[in-house]
């Protein structure tokens, strides 16, 4: 009963907003967009995330176990790098996520700034710590790979430097978010930084193509056949998919936390809070 009433109320409010903000253009906004607006409503998204998150963690975790077993035990040693090449199974998914999550964050920034969508603000803020953790992992594993193979933990070439800038951008978003009292002002500042910093994403990805670097080129995102034999490649692909699901779980959970915090004075949050036993 309550759900029906609130959904109707929401729809009326949405229609009102549409009428208020735009001159009448009958074909411009078809009714099929209502699903999107409903998805963006905090309680609906919270419920959806609640159902989706365990699947992400479950499948992601299973794929990661498979990938690490495949990478550490089943895959043969490399002809040049011997067993040191196995660091790829941690390094490449972390590096891929560092870029993908930043891209998602920048998209959220655009939606948050233009459409003032509260959910996009929450997702943006939720992505930053997850992205920062995987960027740091990419840097650390890169150093641990660089020392035995290149002969140095760190060099200031274009790829390594731009990846370090990526970490600082994530940390900047986290810092900016905590610097403001009002969460909406904070999220808008974060959105601006996320969009401005997006220029770094193609630089990281194409740094090894555009400029000379010590870092090698991309193995799997290459046109034509990937330059890795099949028995070494499958754990990498499994690890990539598993890592994307794993980070999706973390982002969903952090988005839920952000929604709870922002909507703490609403009825649906109070009901959830009342249902949890204190000190449990």
């Amino acid at each position: 009963m309550f759900a029906v009433v609130s959904a109707d109320a929401l729809r009326i409010r949405l229609q009102h907003d549409v009428l208020k903000s735009q001159p009448p253009r009958p074909q411009r906004l078809p009714m099929s967009w209502t699903w999107f607006h409903r998805l963006a409503s905090p309680p609906t998204f919270f419920g959806l995330a609640q159902r989706l998150a365990p699947w992400c963690a479950g499948f992601g975790g299973a794929l990661l176990l498979l990938a690490w077993f495949g990478g550490l035990v089943l895959a043969p040693a490399d002809y040049q790098q011997k067993d040191a090449f196995r660091i790829i199974y941690v390094h490449v998914p972390a590096a891929a996520l560092s870029l993908s999550l930043y891209m998602a964050m920048a998209v959220c920034g655009v939606v948050a700034l233009i459409w003032r969508m509260k959910l996009a603000e929450c997702v943006l803020v939720a992505i930053a710590p997850v992205g920062a953790s995987f960027t740091a992992l990419a840097l650390v594993t890169g150093m641990l790979w660089g020392k035995p193979m290149w002969g140095a933990y760190w060099v200031w070439d274009a790829r390594l430097t731009s990846e370090l800038v990526l970490l600082f951008l994530y940390l900047g978003v986290i810092g900016l978010n905590s610097a403001f009292e009002d969460p909406r002002t904070a999220a808008r500042a974060c959105a601006l930084l996320a969009i401005v910093g997006f220029v770094n994403v193609p630089i990281v990805h194409y740094s090894v193509v555009w400029w000379n670097s010590l870092h090698q080129g991309s193995t799997i995102l290459k046109l034509g056949k990937p330059n890795i034999s099949a028995d070494m490649a499958w754990p990498l692909y499994a690890g990539l998919l598993g890592s994307y699901l794993w980070s999706a779980h973390a982002v969903l959970r952090r988005t839920q936390n952000e929604l709870l915090l922002r909507e703490r004075n609403t009825r649906w949050v109070r009901e959830i809070a009342a249902a949890t036993e204190p000190g449990a």
Binding site: Y79, W150, L214, Q216, G217, S218, T219, N227, I228, S229
Partner: peptide
């Protein structure tokens, strides 16, 4: 003064390389 290795992006088992 310093020599660093720049390996490529190809990975394969020794038999295939041979």
């Amino acid at each position: 003064d310093q020599v660093l290795a720049k390996h490529d992006e190809n990975y394969m088992p020794p038999d295939l390389a041979k």
